[in-house]
Simulated scan of single mutants.
Amino acid sequence: MSKVKYYYDPETLSYRKIERKKRKTFKYILGFITASALFGFLTVFVTSHFVESPKEKALKRELSNMQLHYDMLNKKMNEASEVLASIEDRDNNIYRIYFEANPIPKEQRIAGFGGINRYKGLEGYDNSKLIIESSKKLDVLQKQIVVQSKSLDEIAKLAEDKEKLLAAIPAIQPVNNVDLTRIASGYGYRTDPFTKARKFHYGMDFTAPRGTPVYATGDGVVVRADNHSTGYGNHIRIDHGYGYVSLYAHLYKYNVKKNQKVERGDLIGFVGSTGRSEAPHLHYEIFKDDERINPTNFYYGSLTPEEYNSLLEKASLENQSLD
């Protein structure tokens, strides 16, 4: 039972009973309902926007962890790019120059990927920009590694060829200094021993007793060991590859045969005086691409600087040749 309420009426100097009208009661009820609904809405709004649920907290932690991993991945890719840049610099400015290969253009090393948008599937997410940039950087890095890998394969092949070239080039004296009587004549104009006319002498004459050992000056294959070339008598020709051929003339006898592989320093024959020769000696020539060149440029593998300077001095004298 509801309580009866009164109020004091100063005009009548008496207490009067409070009569509540139905319309006013309806307003009170409507106001209460409206206030309750507003309070509920505010509660839901605040809860949803300012108070995180356990699931939201877990997702936020996962997102933060993912961003941390992407940052670490980017840092590692930057470090890898720096290391790769150092390798590329050495590749272009040391290795490829040493082996006489053209440097790889920077544009070819860092070229991107044209055509369709290969990252479209990564768009539309909160962290799409971070993911796309990381993916682009990784793709470029992978391409740079592929280019550098192929370059190193090429350098390895060039190094192998260079090693073979260095072993093949005629680089030692064909007769040991201890076995030499003297260097009779060098490359250039000399007096012919038979006609006494001045003519060009295309090789070097090493005077030594008959039977003195003659050695291959570089790795190669014997392409001739015969006396079928006018003036040379018994002679040997070795094809060293790379356009180089060495010739050993006026031999007493051979120690090799045609098509035999030889290495630098192998005994191939013995000094003699066969063919157009005035005395026992070895006539030695070097061909490069079918052109005869000065053999004095190829003795760096067996002589000291003093011995080489002495050889140059003796070989430059315009004297009489022995053939």
Rank of each mutant, 00 (worst) to 15 (best):
N78I: 05
T195S: 15
D192K: 02
N93V: 05
L13N: 14
L84D: 04
S48P: 00
M204A: 10
I169T: 09
P213I: 02
K137L: 05
V4W: 00
R90H: 08
L311N: 04
I236H: 08
E307Y: 07
R23W: 13
E163A: 06
K21A: 07
G188T: 04
K258A: 14
N177H: 03
Y215H: 15
G211I: 08
K57E: 15
T296C: 13
D266P: 02
S246Q: 12
G31H: 12
D153K: 12
A249L: 09
I183V: 14
G243K: 09
G188D: 07
D89K: 14
E19G: 05
R224I: 02
N93R: 11
F45T: 03
G203A: 04
P54I: 01
L158K: 13
N117M: 01
F113Y: 13
Q148T: 15
G233A: 06
G265V: 11
I236K: 07
A37G: 02
Y6F: 15
R96K: 11
N297D: 09
L282W: 13
Y95C: 03
I131T: 11
E19D: 12
H283T: 02
L247R: 05
F200Q: 02
N93E: 15
R118D: 01
S310Y: 06
S316F: 04
T274F: 10
R264A: 06
D71K: 15
P193I: 11
L312V: 01
K129P: 00
G301S: 08
A315P: 02
Y8E: 05
L322T: 14
K22N: 11
Q144C: 02
M204P: 01
Y284D: 01
I286N: 08
I236F: 07
I293A: 06
R276T: 13
K24N: 09
P103I: 01
R276H: 06
